[in-house]
Each structure stands twice: as structure tokens, then as C-alpha cells.
Design a protein around this nucleic acid. Sequence first.
DNA 1: TACAGTGATGACTGTTACTGACATCAGAAC
DNA 2: GTTCTGATGTCAGTAACAGTCATCACTGTA
Lengths: 189, 189
Amino acid sequence: MARWQPGTRERLARAALELFSAQGFEQTTAAEIARSVGLTERTFFRHFADKREVLFDGQQSFTQAFLDGVEAAPPGAPPFEVVASALRSAGRFFDDERRAFARARQAVIEANPALQERERHKRAALAAAMHAAMLARGTADPAASVAAETAATVFSLAFQQWIRPGEDRTLAQIAAGVLAEVRRFAAAG
Amino acid sequence: MARWQPGTRERLARAALELFSAQGFEQTTAAEIARSVGLTERTFFRHFADKREVLFDGQQSFTQAFLDGVEAAPPGAPPFEVVASALRSAGRFFDDERRAFARARQAVIEANPALQERERHKRAALAAAMHAAMLARGTADPAASVAAETAATVFSLAFQQWIRPGEDRTLAQIAAGVLAEVRRFAAAG
DNA sequence: TACAGTGATGACTGTTACTGACATCAGAAC
DNA sequence: GTTCTGATGTCAGTAACAGTCATCACTGTA
């Protein structure tokens, strides 16, 4: 028999979400999460840089969805279209199976300011990745920044709506609507 | 003679910036900051919710500058114009006297991810305040969110540029340029 | 002028997030 | 079969915070 059970990170992350949901983020210690899956606190911190990070695993695969969407846009497409393509790709990543999980996770995050802070940081990391991708594709810098930040903003607003109770449109549909709203905003006045 | 010196918060904040600049954020303990102005660690944490917060004091007066700008916009003005007005008002708040201080502060923040996280959180708080102001002024919700987030984004990008070495345009000038870029972004494609 | 509040602070104690160093030991590689 | 590797356990330590109670210059009131 194997010395250690596989999938340590995943087991820790799952246990953490359960405990946070049941008794709150601050009321749950890292040692408690680790014990609940038969590990020690030290091992927890070997897998996650800090206690908050356990809720934000798998960030890079989701960022990758945006970058794939950027790459899928035809060369020479205007930044607005590139952002739209990135958002469609992200919309495909967050399919309907993820929605229930996302809701549970978001409930925990919304109950704790420190977790909201970490979420903004992840949003900023997404914007930075998009920025680099826009630059790499030849878009110059004031425009590249605006495009990247707009992508992150539209995603953020659309995601909030996507997990709202009763909402059943896809993330891609909602994001397209928000992006259209950006266009209206800039056109008027 | 008074029992305590006045301006405790300000003395702590000033000492903190100096120590962080000289030896780094993580290398400076809260107890050290407090001792350097003749106080105890416990008193430090009575004035600031956490160690990072000492660098983000006076946030609400700066948010107020945005809200003043919103109020200054004529009733019925389109959201884009309201945002432009808010950015002009913020530009007046960050006058040239503040630039050197802002640069020193930003150097500390950019050297530490935890401080960057807090800064994003402040940006989000600004967006939330702008959002509430837009709603109060009668702008409905998808548009209000987009306007608020755009204001925060444009300010953020403009501020970064404003403190760049060698930059000597005013913040208002830079922000106006970034806002024009947003319009170009949304118009093309 | 006496005297009871008030409020900022100090002193003390405790919890927990995190870190460094070293030991352990099943399985893979040779 | 020996050596190596890598994930883990153990132990000790630092520093960020929080709760609680005492202190004491100042303020208002009688």
C-alpha cells in the first residue's frame, strides 16, 4: 500500500471549503483542515503559501482560458474583439457544472474581507496576464492596458451575476451583455 | 504638559513609511514602529486594524474627491461625463505636492505582494463608492457598475503613470488621456 | 475645590499563521 | 540490495493580532 494517499492538494482544498462553509473562515484553523484529512499543519503550508490560498487553487488554468481566447482571435483584430474572444473562451471554461461549486465558494469569500482581498489580487493577476498577451500580439501600451483591464472588469461583473441565485444564463451570454454595456457607456456623452 | 503627544496616527504612519523604506515591510515589526515613536505595539493595533493599513490611511478623503466630482456633474449628464468629472476632481486632489510622497509610498508597496493586495482592495472600495453614487444619481445598474469600474480602472492606470519617474503631467491630464483611450477601445471593432 | 467620569495608553496573556531545520521512510532507480 | 528521492512528521521559534485590566492626565460638574 502506498505510503501517502494521492491528491493531497485536492483533498485539502475540498476539506477547507467544507469547513469554511460550515463554521467560517476565521473559525477554522489550518491545523484543523490538515487534521481532517489525516495530515499535519506543516504539510498544509507546504501545499499552500497561506491559509487563504487554499480557496484559490487552479487559478492558472482559468487564466489560460482567457489567453486561449486571445490567441483564437484573428491577427489584426481590434482589441475590443480580442477581449470579446477571451471572454467567450472563459465562458466556456465556467460551464454549468461549475456553477454550484462557484456559488458555495463565493459565499465563503463574501463573508470574509481578507478573502475578498485575495480575490481582487487574482483579478489583477488576470489583468496582468491579459496585458502581456495584448502586448505580445502587437497592441501598444495605453490600449493594451485598457483592453486587459476591461477584460478583467467585464469578467468580474459577469461572474458576480452568473452566480446570483436564480440566474441561469451562461457566463458567456452575461459577459457579452456587459461588454455591450461598456460600448454604450463609451459611446454616450 | 499633555499626557500624550497629539497626532498619534500621523506619527505612526510617518514612522512606518520611513522604516519600511529603509529596511522593508516584512523586516519591520509593528512593535518596532511603535517603539520608534515612544508607543507600544498594542497602541499601534488600536489605531490600525493591521500592519498593512498604516500605509493606507486617509483613503476616505481621497474617495470623497471622486464623489465630489460626481456631484459636480450636471444632472442628466451621461455616465461617461460623470466619470470624467470625478476623475478631474481626483486629479485636483493629487496635486504636485503629493507626488513625491506618493512615489515613496508606491515604492514600498511595489516591493511587497501583501501590500499590493491591500491596494487592490482600496481600489475596489473606490469602485463600490462610485457605484453607490451612480445609483443614487439615477443611473441604472448595469451601466452604474460599468461606470464605477471604469472610473476606478482609469484612475489606477493614470496614477501608475503619474508617479513614474520623469512624468510631469498632472494626474488630471493623464487620466483624461486614458479615458479617451477607453473611448477608442470601445469604438473600434 | 473636590471628585467622579473619560479616553488613550501600558502591561500582560494567549492564539494562530507561518517558517526553518532535521528526521523518517516507502518506493523508484540503479 | 543499496542508494536516492520526495512527501511527510516533529519540534522550536517569530510575529501578527486580540482580550482584559490597570493607569492616569484631563474634563465636566457640584
